[in-house]
């Protein structure tokens, strides 16, 4: 049960956090140069975005869940399982961002799922 919660948090909060951050950054706008002043402006604008804070909070939860999972399982087991975020990303993109997920992409998602399943059953 605990491992289910941990892996779900890693995948869901990780992907959700990335979605929030990318949404925040779309509101902030792109950095036009790498000048320190320009970067400072972008950072200042970014920290005033509520989406940014939501994203950072979710990514932090995902990180702590990752630490929790690593305390119990091997790295070579935990990291491949986090590839499920591609699956979550496809569903999330389709559901929340209105992206059209092509047949080919679903095939890729299915392959990732099969791979993770193999890793799961290959648990030694």
């Amino acid at each position: 049960m605990l491992n289910f919660i941990l892996f779900t948090t890693i995948v869901a909060a990780g992907t959700g956090g990335e979605l929030c951050v990318s949404r925040a950054m779309k509101n902030v706008g792109e950095a036009k140069s790498f000048h320190p002043a320009e970067i400072a402006t972008v950072v200042l604008r970014a920290i005033r975005e509520p989406w940014m804070w939501a994203g950072v909070a979710m990514m932090a939860s995902a990180f702590f869940a990752l630490l929790g999972a690593l305390s119990m399982y091997n790295v070579s087991f935990v990291v491949p399982v986090t590839a499920l975020s591609y699956v979550a990303g496809a569903f999330g993109g389709a559901a929340f961002l209105g992206e059209r997920v092509t047949a080919r992409r679903w095939i890729g998602v299915a392959l990732v799922t099969i791979g993770v399943t193999l890793v799961f059953f290959g648990k030694s």
Partner: peptide, 8 residues
């Protein structure tokens, strides 16, 4: 998994 990521 690598193959799947490649296809995606």
């Amino acid at each position: 998994i690598c193959l799947g990521v490649f296809v995606v």
